[in-house]
Amino acid sequence: MAEFFDMGGYALYVWTAYGVSAAALVWLAVSTRKQLKESAEAVESARARRKGRV
């Protein structure tokens, strides 16, 4: 197991590359989801306001 994590002496480079990639991809996906959810709620409440006025 220790040998696996050592990556033949390249541990720092291999795990940093994978760590940064995973973090960036997850960040983009999660922030996109969050913005999508907020925008959908805003559209819903704008629609409700319009209906309420008529």
Binding site: A29, T32, R33, Q35, L36, S39, V43, A46, R50
Partner: peptide, 23 residues
């Protein structure tokens, strides 16, 4: 596949934003 997922989510997001600015 990741690109397709994030792209479609962002398309929906941009459509919502456009709706809001029109409203």
């Amino acid at each position: 596949a990741y690109f397709v997922v994030v792209f479609l989510w962002r398309m929906k997001l941009e459509i919502n934003r456009r709706k809001l600015s029109v409203a």
